[in-house]
């Protein structure tokens, strides 16, 4: 991905700023990031964690994420040997197992970057996307039963919220499919070169 400001250097940074209550997201190279740095004093740009912690947030999870990051700094993925500190520096994970090894801080990070932590798309083999949502609802329901049985009411309330959110997503998806978008075309509809 190229830097959105200069367009000539690769973008290594994902910058999210809140302007008048609205999220504005940009991918920037280190040079252009540095320009923004001048306008945002007091932020450490020396590593990805600094950016994720200070700018991405603009919300109160900031301290929590910083705590998580510090806590996991020494954590290592036993599969590939990547440390969490290494990931924070380079922004890339070393293997599929890293997602398990760094699950807690990554959950917080994914929430910030995507505003979501639940996949709603395809699953391998091209199975329809609704399937993965349903599978997750089932999984969460099982956890809910266990939480209720264990009298962990705070946890149960959280799970209920998550199930509700997923159910709404699922309904919306299935509702959407019925409404076909109307294509309004001025130009002659060409076939393009669809085939390889």
């Amino acid at each position: 991905m190229m830097c959105e400001e200069c367009g000539i250097r690769p973008a290594n940074f994902h910058l999210v700023t809140i302007i008048n209550g609205e999220r504005v997201e940009r991918n920037l190279c280190p040079t252009c990031m540095a320009k923004h740095q001048k306008q945002l004093p007091g932020i450490d740009f020396s590593n990805l964690a600094g950016i994720l912690n200070s700018i991405l947030s603009g919300n109160r999870d900031e301290e929590e994420q910083a705590k998580l990051d510090a806590e996991y700094e020494m954590c290592t993925c036993e599969q590939c040997g990547m440390t969490y500190a290494e990931f924070q520096k380079g922004g890339m994970l070393g293997c599929a197992n890293c997602y398990k090894a760094f699950k807690t801080p990554l959950t917080a990070l994914l929430q910030r970057v995507h505003g979501n932590t639940q996949h709603a798309g395809r699953v391998p083999g091209g199975v329809h996307s609704g399937t993965s949502i349903r599978m997750n609802i089932d999984r969460l329901r099982q956890k809910l039963q266990k939480a209720v049985a264990d009298e962990e009411y705070e946890q149960a309330a959280k799970l209920r919220d998550a199930i509700r959110a997923l159910s709404i997503q699922l309904e919306r998806r299935e509702g959407d499919i019925k409404v076909q978008p109307q294509a309004r075309l001025k130009t002659e509809r060409g076939e393009g070169n669809g085939d390889v």
Partner: peptide, 16 residues
Amino acid sequence: DHQWGFLAASPANTGT
């Protein structure tokens, strides 16, 4: 991963 979808090297691309 059923929660996170297709796992990418950068978490910014994970999911679909």
